[in-house]
Design a protein around this nucleic acid. Structure first.
Lengths: 200, 200
DNA sequence: CGAGAAAACCTACCATGGGTAGGTTTCGCT
DNA sequence: AGCGAAACCTACCCATGGTAGGTTTTCTCG
């Protein structure tokens, strides 16, 4: 999560920690999740395994933090103050079509964090809850302004949009020619009753 | 896949092989994917690791075969001759809400098989292609019979339905109270222009 | 029915992985 | 200056997937 204690560190440590995060991201993005060991990350940043483990309790925790960091980064990049979260999600999906390594990492984490003991379990859970709630609000806003029929259940759309996003990324991992945001937008338009579209 | 050579074996071996598959499924369903080692499976079936590896080249291949077997089983159970594949998918999803272990296994496999070297890579890829094509046909059939608007792109719906299915299972793994088939049906109805519904 | 080939195993071993224990060096504040 | 904590390292441990090479079982066929 983000409520972790300040964890007082020296300046050097702070920098190193960031370096590890970056290195981990790079390594994972290049060699994939499963093929990136602590050893490799440690080498990339000039430490030993134990050195890395000094900053992160476990490999899983490291990975979780990489994702949550990137998550926050992405969100901030695109979020702004826009109320149209559905559009924002679409753009995030579009952007994800650029970074296979990250999509892979994210997918892995979501699947693995299913176990309650997993360090990222709570994070993923809350993330889902937040996203769904936000999207539902977005639908409600559109309903209020009249651009979406009032008899549509916002929760259904919110859950569906979230599932769509995740599911499309899974498919995309196996076939990078898939136009994720294209399908997403089209499907959403169908659900919200806008004019239909076509896809290749 | 399914084009594997006959691989002549003794009767005993044939039986053992099946036993391994069953044991693996059971172990995975109980302890989860990550916590089920070759050792454990071997113990469950009265062999050593090497004994198991005699039948399957690797742990990954074993897992892949477990999934593909279960896949075939599920499909046969529900498939029949029904042309309404969308409905079939809905029922499969509903049934999946019963077996968390399998959903977990399936999700893991899909994510891991992303790497082209993975033994199940081809399988998953073809599986996706088959499902999407089948669902698209299903949509086209409905369009022909007039129950679905003709200006809807069948491929969009097919891809979206597939993604929805996968994505909902991911969410469900983190929150078993989620009504997968409920959301799925509702979302599909929205897309295909039927009467709207509500969800809890 | 009795070779003999192949299948069905096993024991022993290896490398890699995550992770721990406990020490030594470096840092920075009083 | 000195002291406590952070920033590391070395040396382990153990489980894991996987391999090498042998031994026993099973079947087939003359």
């Amino acid at each position: 999560m983000s409520i972790d204690a300040p964890a007082r560190r020296y300046a050097k440590g702070e920098a190193k920690r960031r370096a590890i995060l970056d290195a981990a991201l790079a390594v994972v993005a290049k060699h994939g999740y499963r093929n990136s060991s602590l050893q490799e990350i440690a080498d990339a940043v000039g430490l030993t395994k134990a050195g890395v483990l000094h900053y992160f309790d476990s490999r899983e925790e490291l990975m979780a933090e990489v994702v949550s960091e990137r998550d926050a980064h992405d969100r901030a990049r695109v979020d702004g103050l826009e109320p149209d979260q559905l559009g924002t999600l679409s753009r995030i999906i579009e952007h994800n079509g650029t970074v296979p390594g990250l999509v892979q990492l994210y997918s892995r984490l979501v699947v693995e964090a299913e176990a309650p003991e997993h360090p990222a379990h709570g994070y993923v859970r809350e993330r889902y809850a937040l996203i769904v709630e936000t999207l539902a609000d977005s639908v409600r806003a559109r309903q209020r302004e009249g651009s979406v029929r009032a008899d549509i259940d916002p929760m259904v759309v919110a859950r569906a949009a979230t599932a769509l996003s995740d599911g499309l990324q899974l498919q995309w991992l196996h076939d990078q020619t898939l136009d994720m945001s294209g399908v997403f937008d089209a499907a959403l338009e169908l659900m919200l009753g806008a004019a239909p579209r076509t896809e290749s």
